[in-house]
Amino acid sequence: MFERFTKEARVPVIEAQFVARSAHTPTIDARHVLVALAESEIGPAVGALRTVGVDVGELARRLRAELAGIDAAALAAVGVDLDEVRRSTDATFGEGAFDGVGGRRGSDRKHIPFASDAKKALSLALREAIRLGSPSIDSGHLLLGILRGGSPAAKALHAALTRAGSDDDALRAAVERSGTPAT
């Protein structure tokens, strides 16, 4: 199925491996794919998210904190600004140093398998492409697959849409309007 993905849609699927590795998780779930999509900066998915008012940077940060097991709201309640901790850590130890806190060492070279919710999102992306008459799967289809999946990634996406004053239908319409290129 991966051969049906456009080049711009392959990037977040591949990058999800690195997101999972930085979070020190044993599998790649749909949240890792959603982080990679949000951070990709290109393609129908990011364009659609921005169209409906989602702050893709905030979405990625929230998901990365969730994946790291850090409850930013709980820390804020006791006076800890997670963004300030990250900036300070990055300034002292280098960009991205905070992302590896609390993780296991030595597993950086092993292949990380996809969890069932990520596999389901990829399968649903194919169904979305077929439904829309596209010969290939782009990042917009991948985003719609995540949205339909009912996973923690879908819940995070719903929450981001709600914060933006939007909803699933508006996101779906924005993806469909993007014309999802057939490259």
Rank of each mutant, 00 (worst) to 15 (best):
D81C: 08
E176Y: 03
R148P: 01
E58C: 11
E8Y: 12
G69A: 03
R109P: 04
T92I: 15
V78R: 14
F18E: 12
I130D: 08
A76L: 01
A72K: 10
F2N: 13
R4G: 04
A125H: 06
T180I: 10
H32M: 03
G106S: 00
D81Q: 06
P152Q: 07
I146Y: 06
D55R: 10
V46C: 04
A36C: 07
T25H: 14
H158S: 14
A97E: 08
A45T: 01
R127K: 11
R64H: 02
R131K: 09
A72R: 12
A9S: 05
R62K: 07
T51V: 14
G100R: 15
D83A: 11
D108I: 15
D29R: 03
G150A: 02
L132N: 08
T25P: 08
D108C: 11
I130G: 04
P44A: 15
S178K: 05
G140H: 05
G165L: 06
H158L: 14
E41T: 15
E15K: 15
R64L: 02
V11K: 11
R4E: 05
D168W: 10
R64D: 00
A160H: 09
P44W: 12
A73I: 09
A118N: 06
K119F: 04
L132V: 03
D169F: 11
Q17M: 10
S123T: 12
A156L: 07
G140P: 01
R86M: 02
E39L: 15
F5Y: 03
G106P: 03
K119I: 05
L37G: 12
G102R: 09
S134A: 11
